[in-house]
Amino acid sequence: MRMAIIGAGGIAVCMAKTIAEMDNVEAYAIGSRSQEKADRFAEEYGFQKAYGSYEELVKDENVDLVYIATPHSEHFANAKLCIQHGKPVLCEKSFTANAKQARELIAMAEKAGVFITEAIWVRYMPMLQTIRKELESGSIGEPKLLTANLGYVAADSYRMRTPELAGGALLDVGVYPLNFALMIFGTDIAKVTSTCTYMDTGVDEQNSAALVYEDGKMAVINSSVLVFSDRKGIIHGTKGSMVIENINNFESLTVYDGEHKEIKHIERPAQISGYEYEVEACMRALETGALECPEMPHAETIRVMDILDGMRAEWGIRYPFE
């Protein structure tokens, strides 16, 4: 599969390094708004083609899949451009800036018969199935409460601070604890209550939310760009608890009994970076002619964006372009 990347920043570098080690994936084209930057990227990471505009890249008939690695504010326009030129899309999380954009993009892709999926990498990792299988085994009893957090010190980042780029902790960091809750407890949510603190630019710097489920389960999630958190996801059950190390790239799970004694520990399998799983999922989908990945269906992407929109509405945060 000849893969192209739109955007030549840090996330693009991670993907470029990953596909360089993958079988059956070719680092084909890089697109940047600067020809000089595209040329440097192509030379450093072994891409065949370097384009100084996204429009040039999507016109290349040899591109099989485009990975969008631009700021959240640009995802809608970038993905729309790809769809208009019939190019399958792997779009970095958060999928778009809001649910309206997500619905429009997905409807456009489905009408055009073009594949598109969200690159929320944890959804595609084999460790997720290991976690679910362990929960189904009953080792911690009936799960009733979940806590998850993710925090990095990144408040000084221009992208993170800028409302015009859909900055803030929520879309960049908060999407992981939310996805963790949805992956583990499902989507039958009765109520979401949330709060945040603000940067001087008006976007959120820290946030917390409580998700109450119809059957009484609760998920409490936190994210921040002010602190380094422990990144843990903890699932509390009637017989014990399960601790997941690093909800941003599952590292291990540990099961504890009701007396807090460790009874099982499972490490994740060897991986390149973790990005490879979403690329492999795209390859499987494209081979069968599917327009979405079962690991992250379109309906689930829209559901996540709806919840994020609801949280921002509660905080009174709107991006300038909305």
Rank of each mutant, 00 (worst) to 15 (best):
T96W: 09
V25N: 01
F95C: 13
D23V: 07
D64N: 10
L65D: 05
S73F: 01
Y67N: 04
K37T: 07
I106A: 05
H75E: 02
I19V: 15
V13L: 12
V13D: 10
K37E: 09
C14H: 13
I106V: 11
V89A: 07
E55N: 14
N78Y: 11
F47Y: 08
F76G: 12
D64A: 09
N24F: 00
N98M: 02
K37F: 05
E61S: 13
K17P: 06
A99H: 00
E55L: 13
N78S: 13
E43Y: 12
N98Y: 04
Q84Y: 15
Y28G: 00
Q101H: 11
D23W: 05
V89M: 07
Y54S: 15
E61G: 13
I68V: 10
M22Y: 05
C91D: 12
I30V: 11
P88G: 06
E43P: 01
A97T: 11
V25E: 12
S73I: 09
S53Y: 00
Q84A: 13
M15H: 15
S32Y: 01
E36H: 11
A79G: 12
G9V: 10
E104Q: 15
A16K: 02
A29I: 13
T96S: 12
C14Q: 15
A27I: 05
Q101D: 00
I19R: 02
E92H: 05
G86I: 03
A27Y: 08
I19K: 00
V66W: 07
N24Y: 04
A29Y: 09
D60W: 01
H75S: 06
G52S: 02
A29C: 06
G86V: 06
A16N: 03
D23F: 06
L65V: 05
Y54Q: 14
S34A: 14
G46Q: 13
L90T: 00
E26M: 10
E36T: 15
D64T: 02
L105V: 02
T18D: 08
D39P: 06
G86H: 08
K80T: 14
G46S: 04
R103I: 09
Y45E: 00
L81C: 03
K87L: 06
R103V: 11
V13T: 15
Y45L: 12
I68M: 03
D60G: 01
A69M: 08
K49F: 11
H72V: 15
P71Y: 03
G86T: 07
K80W: 05
S53F: 00
H72R: 08
A77N: 11
A102P: 07
M108P: 04
H72D: 03
D39W: 05
K100D: 00
I11Y: 14
A77W: 00
N98T: 00
K93L: 11
H85F: 07
P71M: 08
V89K: 03
E36Q: 14
F41C: 11
